[in-house]
């Protein structure tokens, strides 16, 4: 069982408030190593400089959206193994299908609860301790 505290997370959202809320939720789950990026472009730079185990990314963002970020991560060998959870504003079937196409690990629909987010992450990594 992986430890939440040993998993590094990059939170990608253009909204400061949402990043803070996700960070807060992740801390409640037990994550310690949490980084943030305001858009896909910054996120990619961040990951290439220092890989993370898990990316939790919003979809609709300026510059590079969540889907483009997912594609970028998957097409860059050193970081293509990064677990990727898409946080979507709505359960848009088409969007999720495309995300699946590009290798998304899981998706989570806003609004979410701390417990809900935890379950989504556990579906990827297995039960967290």
């Amino acid at each position: 069982m992986p430890q939440a505290s040993s998993i590094s997370v990059l939170v990608v959202d253009d909204q400061l408030t949402m990043r803070a809320l996700i960070r807060n939720a992740l801390q409640q789950i037990g994550f310690k190593d949490i980084r943030e990026a305001p858009d896909g472009e910054e996120a990619l730079k961040n990951l290439l400089a220092k890989p993370a185990n898990l990316v939790i990314s919003d979809f609709n963002m300026p510059k590079m959206d969540g889907l483009a970020l997912l594609r970028a991560v998957r097409s860059h060998p050193p970081i293509r193994q990064t677990a990727f959870v898409m946080l979507t504003g709505r359960a848009d079937r088409e969007l999720v299908q495309r995300a699946v196409q590009f290798g998304v690990n899981n998706y989570c629909v806003k609004p979410f609860t701390v417990q809900g987010l935890k379950e989504k992450i556990e579906q990827v990594f297995g039960q967290l301790t």
Partner: peptide, 19 residues
């Protein structure tokens, strides 16, 4: 939708190349 699982080991192997 089926979540896609992943292990930290697999990531570590790749990350080593980068790191």
């Amino acid at each position: 939708f089926q979540p896609m699982t992943i292990t930290l080991d697999a990531q570590a192997a790749d990350a080593a190349v980068l790191d």
